Simulated assay, not measured.
Amino acid sequence: MTTATIVALAAAEEHHVGLFDNVGYGIIALVVFLLLGFVTFSYRNVANRHSAKAEAYAQRRGAHVEQAGHGHH
């Protein structure tokens, strides 16, 4: 086969892309972003979960405990 024949045959082929092929990428991306959002959401308020434990540790060590900005009184 010559190069001209290969190019002619390649040009003659029609390639149809179905709707699901295009939508499939969007669905996969959506699932990945939702999963990453759930992981991010699960780390919400982690710093305050053990605030009493952290304060007790700081008091035992003689460190000054700052409570500003985290809802402590």
Rank of each mutant, 00 (worst) to 15 (best):
M1K: 09
M1C: 12
M1P: 00
T2I: 03
T2D: 05
T3R: 09
A4P: 01
T5Y: 02
I6A: 11
A8L: 03
A8R: 06
L9H: 04
A10S: 06
A11M: 08
A12M: 10
A12L: 11
H15Y: 09
H15I: 10
H15N: 14
H16F: 07
H16N: 15
V17F: 13
G18D: 15
L19K: 05
G24N: 03
I27W: 05
I27A: 12
I27V: 11
I28K: 06
I28M: 09
A29S: 09
L30D: 15
V31Y: 10
V32D: 03
F33N: 15
L35Q: 04
L35H: 07
L35G: 09
L36Y: 10
G37I: 08
V39R: 15
T40A: 14
T40M: 12
F41C: 01
S42I: 08
R44K: 09
N45P: 00
V46D: 12
N48L: 11
N48Q: 12
R49A: 08
H50I: 07
S51R: 13
S51I: 08
S51E: 08
A52K: 06
A52V: 07
K53A: 04
E55F: 01
E55K: 03
A56W: 05
Y57R: 13
Q59M: 09
R60G: 03
R61N: 04
G62I: 00
G62S: 05
A63N: 08
A63Q: 07
A63G: 02
H64P: 02
E66T: 07
A68L: 05
G69E: 02
H70F: 13
G71Y: 00
G71A: 03
H72P: 00
H73F: 15
